[in-house]
């Protein structure tokens, strides 16, 4: 753990009675990172974020921000800023009043507050709405106010709790761009909590995947996509085909006519393959399986082939449309293969 980490968690834990929401967790985040915590709902990611922000007290462990132990401090005394999932705009205030509130609490001079608010409204394109009351704003506008309101205080860490979940897809894509631009413009440290892997892939430069209250893998989006630590990560990040097999004496048996060499202890294993890593009619020598076509979806540049093995295991294959001479028909049989160097073999639990 590098000593110069901006944020460090040492064994941070949260229990509710017998239920462990967050198992003892260590984490360190560098200054300037756009860090994402990814996981399904109920995995403990929001609780972890709230412990960083000071809204939930850890049952054990220490939270360090910029070298200071903030474990016992409330949110009002932490150098962190939070953007809430449903924004929490002050409904009785205008856009300007919302954004200025934090600076007013700090009793900054009026002129300086006005200048900073104007600058912040420009940054998030809200200048024309300065005097509009909060209840009259659209979802995207609220999101921008919430961001501006937190950023104006120049937090050392900006915490984003599913900030885009309430927006529609198109607006979400726009906001993705704006968030990245903001992060680059400000150069701050952002921690994003999300259950949307594509959002995380788009925004973050480091990701921690959580499941069942613990971080199961941490790394760059690319690392996590290409080298998932287990079947859960592989299926949660992107799409993945998981083919069960049994290893005996360095050989994995996948079915009547599919075997491949792979060293390891005897027992059940899963072979993990991304849809784009599988191909139709592989060259001989490559591992392959026979399957029947369930459905075929033509998407322009790509065609998605849904297949099923004879034992019922479902497989998804992404094919480049221009490389297909003929399109397999649903109900027909196909042979699906892959390059063994791309496969990921995980011991089944």
């Amino acid at each position: 753990m590098p000593p110069d980490a901006l944020l460090r968690l040492d064994g941070v834990t949260r229990r509710y009675g017998d239920h462990v929401a967050v198992a003892p967790t260590d984490l360190s985040i560098q200054a300037g990172d756009f860090f994402a915590i990814l996981g399904p709902s109920g995995c403990g990611k929001t609780t972890l974020l709230r412990m960083i922000g000071g809204f939930v007290a850890p049952s054990a462990g220490t939270v360090w921000i910029d070298g200071a132990d903030v474990t016992r401090l409330g949110p009002e005394r932490r150098p962190s800023g939070m953007v809430f999932q449903n924004y929490g705009l002050f409904q009785h205030m205008t856009v300007r009043q919302n954004i200025a509130y934090g600076l007013k609490l700090r009793r900054e001079p009026r002129a300086r507050i006005d200048a900073a608010v104007d600058e912040m409204m420009d940054l998030v394109h809200l200048r024309h709405l300065a005097d509009r009351p909060a209840p009259q704003l659209s979802g995207g506008q609220r999101q921008r106010v919430a961001l501006a309101r937190a950023l104006i205080l120049k937090p050392k860490v900006l915490l984003l709790d599913e900030p885009l979940a309430a927006l529609d897809l198109k607006l979400r894509k726009t906001m993705h761009g704006e968030l990245r631009a903001l992060h680059q413009a400000i150069g701050g440290t952002f921690i994003l909590v999300s259950h949307d892997q594509s959002e995380v892939m788009t925004l973050a430069d480091r990701v921690a995947v959580m499941d069942g209250g613990r971080i199961v893998q941490e790394g760059s989006p690319r690392d996590i996509y290409t080298k998932p630590a287990d079947a859960f990560v592989s299926t949660f990040i992107g799409e993945a085909n998981v083919i069960p097999g049994i290893r005996r004496g360095g050989r994995i048996d996948l079915g009547p006519d599919a075997r491949l060499d792979h060293a390891g202890r005897d027992g059940p294993v899963n072979i993990m393959l991304r849809p784009e890593q599988m191909e139709l009619d592989p060259p001989s020598g490559a591992p392959s399986l026979e399957a029947s076509v369930v459905d075929l979806i033509f998407l322009g540049p790509f065609t998605h082939l849904h297949c099923a093995l004879d034992d019922g295991v479902r497989l998804l294959v992404h094919l480049e449309s221009r490389k297909l001479a003929t399109f397999p028909a649903p109900g027909g049989r196909v042979r699906l293969g892959w390059n063994p160097s791309e496969q990921l073999v995980l011991d089944a639990p």
């Binding site: 922000g53 000071g54 809204f55 409330g74 949110p75 009002e76 005394r77 962190s80 800023g81 939070m82 809430f84 999932q85 449903n86 924004y87 929490g88 705009l89 002050f90 409904q91 509130y101 934090g102 609490l105 700090r106 919430a146 309101r149 937190a150 205080l153």
Partner: peptide
């Protein structure tokens, strides 16, 4: 009718 998040946001901004 008041969203608890507003209270959390105010505290986050430094209000006791």
């Amino acid at each position: 009718d008041i969203d608890e998040t507003e209270l959390a946001a105010a505290r986050d901004m430094g209000a006791g």
